[in-house]
Design a protein around this nucleic acid. Structure first.
Lengths: 106, 106
DNA sequence: TCTTTAACTTACATTTCGTAACTTAGTTTA
DNA sequence: TAAACTAAGTTACGAAATGTAAGTTAAAGA
């Protein structure tokens, strides 16, 4: 009747990675440092949610935010070492999707 | 200005795996076939959403639903081969979480 | 007949998300 | 001098997803 003892670190990892947009954002940043507007243009995410997620990933030390003092100011986002360490997860998803996922067209 | 060409199968995999509860559900089912009430008791998910997600995973052929005709009826859920193939993704997340994720306590 | 049980449903409140318009501060343009 | 432009947000608000709690169903046992 009681719940399984899930490792809290694993649980937290799932919370972060399964939060909408987060894995796609990390996937996008695997290409290297990118500014806010570049990310926004690549993904079909709204600025409201993009800002929110980048803040979350920054708080989790997965993403680093750098201010480039120009006019207008430019902000660059890049993965930290912790962030790049998520790459194998994305690789595993890519592998599974190429092995098993089919697109149903009509 | 245009979006990156993300493989539609990878994109679909992300849609499925990042949908709230889905990875945790799959993780739970890696232990083997389980009935509805067992899953419900292990995770803190509501029956409304649990039913919804199990249907989604069944539609995606990740989960198989079996009716055991008893009274009251018992339903057993288990991963398909496609479902078990997600295990490496979970393993990669476990690895990352044990390497990098810390729990902030107060 | 009444109660019990497993696996859902349903109604409704709360939270999260998406959309579009607005803000801020320097800089160029008119 | 003032209006226009730009990047990176922020705000207000409606729509969609999620959580909560109570209800449903059908057969069987008390």
């Amino acid at each position: 009747m009681d719940q399984k003892n899930i490792c809290p670190r694993f649980e937290k990892a799932l919370m972060i990675l399964n939060h909408r947009w987060n894995t796609l954002l990390i996937y996008q940043l695997l290409d290297g440092p990118q500014r806010y507007s570049t990310i926004k243009n690549q993904l079909s995410i709204s600025s409201r949610v993009l800002t929110e997620r980048l803040k979350e990933l920054e708080t989790e030390q997965i993403v680093l935010r750098t201010v480039i003092p120009s006019t207008p100011v430019i902000i660059e986002y890049e993965l930290t070492e912790k962030g790049y360490a998520i790459a194998p997860v994305l690789k595993a998803i890519e592998q599974w999707s190429s092995d098993w996922v089919t697109i149903t067209e009509e």
